[in-house]
Amino acid sequence: MRYHSIVWDMGGTLIDTYPSVDRTLARVVRAHGEPIEEDLVARLTRRAIAVAIDELSERYGVPHTDLDAAYARLKRSWTTTPPPVMAGAREVLSHVRSVGGRNIVVTNRDRTSASALLAATGLDVDDLVCASDGFPRKPDPQMYRAVLDRNGLDPADCLAVGDRAIDAVASRQVGLDCVILETPGIPVVEDGERITDLRRLIDLMAGDQPISPSR
Rank of each mutant, 00 (worst) to 15 (best):
Pro82Met: 00
Ser57Asp: 11
Arg27Phe: 14
Asp9Ile: 01
Leu153Ile: 02
Pro213Tyr: 07
Thr121Trp: 07
Phe135Tyr: 15
Tyr3Lys: 06
Pro213Trp: 10
Glu193Val: 11
Met143Gln: 01
Leu14Tyr: 10
Ala168Gly: 11
Thr183Asn: 08
Arg200Glu: 13
Arg76Asn: 05
Gly134Leu: 11
Ser20Met: 06
Asn103Met: 08
Gly100Trp: 14
Glu91Cys: 04
Arg200Gly: 14
Val96Asn: 11
Arg43Lys: 05
Ile15Ser: 05
Ala89Val: 04
Arg164Trp: 03
Gly207His: 13
Asp126Ile: 02
Ile211Val: 13
Gly162Phe: 01
Val92Asn: 05
Asn103Phe: 04
Gly134Gln: 12
Met205Glu: 15
Leu67His: 02
Ala206His: 13
Ser57Tyr: 10
Pro184Ser: 07
Ala160Phe: 05
Asp66Leu: 08
Asp110Ala: 11
Asp68Gly: 09
Arg137Tyr: 13
Ser132His: 05
Pro82Gln: 06
Pro35Lys: 14
Ile104Asn: 08
Ala52Asn: 09
Trp78His: 03
Ile104Ser: 13
Asp191Pro: 07
Ile53His: 12
Asp16Pro: 01
Glu91Lys: 08
Tyr18Cys: 00
Val51Gln: 06
Ile53Cys: 09
Gly11Met: 03
Ala48Asp: 09
Arg27Lys: 15
Gly192Trp: 00
Leu201Lys: 11
Ala160Cys: 15
Arg2Leu: 12
Asp133Tyr: 12
Gly33Lys: 08
Val21Ile: 15
Pro139Gly: 03
Glu91Phe: 05
Ile53Tyr: 08
Leu201Thr: 08
Ala87Cys: 01
Ser98Val: 10
Asn108Val: 04
Ser77Gly: 09
Arg137Cys: 10
Ala89Lys: 07
Arg73Ala: 01
His95Arg: 14
Ile6Leu: 11
Asp66Asn: 00
Val41Thr: 11
His64Trp: 12
Tyr3Thr: 02
Thr65Val: 10
Val7Met: 13
Ala146Ile: 05
Gly152Ser: 14
Arg200Met: 13
Gly122Thr: 03
Val106Ala: 01
Gly61Thr: 04
Val92Glu: 00
Pro210Gln: 09
Ser113Ile: 07
Asp203Gln: 12
Thr13Trp: 02
Tyr60His: 15
Arg23Phe: 04
Arg109Glu: 09
Asp9Asn: 08
Ser214Gly: 03
Thr13Ile: 02
Ser77Cys: 07
Ser57Ala: 13
Ala119Tyr: 15
Val106Gly: 01
Arg23Trp: 04
Val174Thr: 09
Val125Pro: 12
Arg23Ala: 07
Thr196Leu: 10
Thr80Ser: 14
Arg200Thr: 14
Val29Lys: 10
Val92His: 03
Arg46Gly: 04
Val125Ser: 09
Tyr71Ala: 00
Arg90Gln: 03
Asp167Ala: 05
Arg145Gln: 11
Asp177Gly: 12
Ala170Pro: 01
Ser98Gly: 08
Cys178Tyr: 05
Cys178Gln: 06
Pro19Arg: 10
Ala69Thr: 04
Lys75Ala: 02
Gly122Met: 03
Thr24Gln: 01
Thr17Ser: 00
Ala206Asp: 11
Thr81Lys: 04
Val169Pro: 02
Asp126Trp: 09
Thr13Lys: 00
Gly192Tyr: 02
Ser212Lys: 15
